[in-house]
Design a binder for these strands. Structure first.
Lengths: 202, 202
DNA sequence: GTCTATATCTCGATAGAC
DNA sequence: GTCTATCGAGATATAGAC
């Protein structure tokens, strides 16, 4: 029966390598950007030989796609966690607090989805910018859902304002290399969330 | 005396080429990003032979520097124009209206200074990220000056909020490829500026 | 000052042994 | 499935004629 376990082991090893490559891609592409990252960088980080990368991903773009979907998964997990809180307003405030908690990463590398979207949108071939926008759209929709549940008017407009606030403070913290920007603007967003009043009646 | 005019003509032609290269670099680097732009791209746009570029700029980084300083100059000119308005609040509102007026460019390519800062901040060698941050700092300082002139408390914090709002709405408009984001969030910023009340007394 | 030709290097991708 | 060796494209930068 050893051929069975051998085969299984191989398949596990294979999928482990694929997952290592995906995780490494998400991390390195966030830190270095797409254009400045070589396949060798990702392979090294994942502890996989360079030539072997092509067994798992046909092209570099495929690795970028995998990294974007990884960020989407992380976002989904965060949303699931926050979903355990009873109050939608509390969920949104916890989200902002999570952003503030990431202030050092944001000051050094910016928001993963945001900075990737900026870079991919520069490409003349519109191959990947839709995928980058999708992660941000996912965040917008979840936030919009919370505002809707709160019974606030124009929930999608409010979501746009909150996410734009996040992207703006991340970009400024990054450009100025100053984590305090995250704290200051994050605190303002928390106060803003508190100030929103649900209209009386239907 | 022809050698005099010849010499002068040459010098004028030279500085014209330098200026054409700088303007082309500012435009192309904004649209394509730094990494995806080749010297050939910029040379073509400036109508200068590729090899000749190196007479005016020793390295590609020098061209990026020139482009950044060009954006700084544009910003200075805009500030000078807005300075003619009597009311500081009116100046800030005119600034936001100018941003809204650029909504189509923002939806396609983002804010020039913001997207360049994002890309340059990814570089491990911190050669150019200070320069990118400087343009944004210049904007922050001008905006802060207007709030200060209005006599509002925490003018620098308000400037951070306004500029973060601009960067956030530009990034979202770009990522979602939707100019309406600029209009919606821009209108909100205009209302916000109107709502700020100068405290009575000193 | 201007321009052509080219050296040099790096990276994505492939071929093919194991 | 795994890995090495290498091809070929495309980029920056330089050498040197005019």
């Amino acid at each position: 029966m050893s051929w069975v376990t051998d085969s299984v082991n191989r398949r596990v090893a294979a999928s482990q390598k694929r997952r290592r490559l995906t995780a490494a891609a998400a991390r390195v592409l966030h830190e270095q950007g797409v254009e400045r990252t070589t396949l060798a960088d990702i392979a090294r980080e994942a502890d996989v030989p360079v030539g072997n990368v092509y067994y798992y991903f046909k092209t570099k773009d495929d690795l970028v796609r995998a990294a974007l979907s990884e960020h989407g998964t992380h976002l989904g997990e965060l949303a699931e966690e926050l979903g355990r809180l009873a109050d939608p307003r509390g969920r949104l405030k916890a989200l902002v607090e999570a952003w503030i908690g990431q202030r050092d990463v944001a000051a050094r590398f910016g928001c993963p989805a945001g900075t990737l979207a900026v870079e991919l949108d520069k490409r003349a071939d519109g191959v990947l910018d839709a995928e980058a926008g999708a992660v941000i759209r996912q965040l917008l929709e979840w936030v919009g859902g919370q505002f809707r549940e709160l019974g606030l008017p124009d929930p999608d407009g409010l979501a746009l304002t909150l996410v734009a606030g996040y992207q703006g403070m991340s970009l400024l913290a990054n450009a100025l290399r100053d984590p305090d920007v995250m704290t200051r603007e994050g605190t303002r967003l928390l106060r803003w969330l508190d100030s929103l009043e649900v209209p009386a009646g239907g």
